[in-house]
């Protein structure tokens, strides 16, 4: 369980980091919290010729209030959200999600940006931030771009990030006071990645968003379920189950029966929690 040899550089600003990453063309990879990358390097399922330490870059640590929400630097840790020390536009959802990620020692160092960039299908932040309609800002050699989470994540462990591009911030829109959320997660052991994870955000004048994620299913929006909730906020449980089933057939066509039942139960729980008065 030792990583293969690599070089290490610690650039002093973001421009220098992107320059090194561009030059490395994929053999140079950024590390910040390292809480997923380190075990992957140790297990040798990931490799790098050069690790570019971006954990001290001030450009990734700014947290600011914008006119529509809160912009978190990509290096914001799960623990910082868990502890409620930062402004929360999500009315408690992000706190709930953060406190259920892995273990405290991991939450102290693991970052929101890292979770998005790795795009583990069972990870918490992609699902949560997708449900909240967050915008992700990426800085690269050709300038900035801002994308939604579904645009960023193409599939398990696959994003649109090109060599040299780094996620710098995540802007989370403020949930209206009347909006409600639900969150449900099933993992065989506390702290483990989820078999099924669902976040539902409904009401408050926004269109409903329902997300499923899990060990074999990248975070996906369940559009039938969401539009049912928009049309009929008090839809019956049977109608919800039908919509959820239809959605799961579309987003997880290869999922087996067990996986679909687990997903369906967890989505239903999240939606019902969000519908509680």
């Amino acid at each position: 369980m030792k990583p293969a040899p690599f070089d290490y550089v610690r650039p002093s600003h973001l421009g220098e980091a992107t320059e090194i990453l561009v030059k490395g063309q994929g053999s140079a990879i950024p590390i910040s919290g390292g809480q997923s990358l380190m075990p992957m390097l140790s297990l040798r399922v990931a490799s790098a010729e050069t690790l570019v330490d971006i954990s001290r870059l001030f450009e990734l640590k700014t947290v600011e209030e914008t006119s529509t929400g809160i912009s978190y630097g990509a290096a914001t840790t799960h623990a910082a959200i868990e502890d409620g020390k930062l402004p929360d536009p999500s009315r408690g959802l992000m706190h709930k999600v953060a406190s259920g990620i892995s273990y405290r020692a991991v939450r102290n160092f693991g970052t929101m940006g890292g979770s998005l960039a790795l795009a583990d299908p069972a990870a918490d932040w992609p699902a949560c931030l997708m449900a909240l309609g967050a915008l992700v800002t990426i800085v690269g050699p050709d300038g900035n771009r801002t994308v939604t989470v579904p645009e960023l994540i193409e599939g398990p462990y696959t994003t649109i990030l090109a060599p040299g591009e780094v996620i710098t911030s995540i802007e989370v829109p403020r949930l209206p006071a009347e909006a409600r959320w639900g969150y449900s997660k099933f993992a065989r052991k506390s702290g483990a990645f989820a078999n099924s994870l669902s976040v539902a955000v409904i009401g408050g004048g926004n269109k409903a968003r329902v997300v499923i994620a899990g060990s074999s299913t990248s975070s996906s929006l369940l559009t039938d379920t969401a539009s049912l909730l928009d049309r009929t906020p008090d839809a019956t449980e049977d109608d919800l189950k039908t919509a959820i089933r239809d959605d799961l057939t579309k987003v997880d066509p290869n999922g087996d029966d067990y996986q679909h039942r687990s997903h369906a139960a967890i989505v239903l729980r999240a939606v019902q929690q969000a519908r509680l008065p």
């Binding site: 369980m1 290490y8 610690r10 590390i31 390292g34 809480q35 380190m38 075990p39 140790s42 297990l43 690790l51 330490d53 954990s55 623990a79 892995s102 273990y103 405290r104 020692a105 991991v106 102290n108 160092f109």
Partner: peptide, 25 residues
Amino acid sequence: HGACGACTVTINGLPARSCLTLAVM
């Protein structure tokens, strides 16, 4: 690989998995 917790130390006061942390960092 970060699962057992036996290697926990603190870094600047924060508990950390020393097996998931590079010394150079």
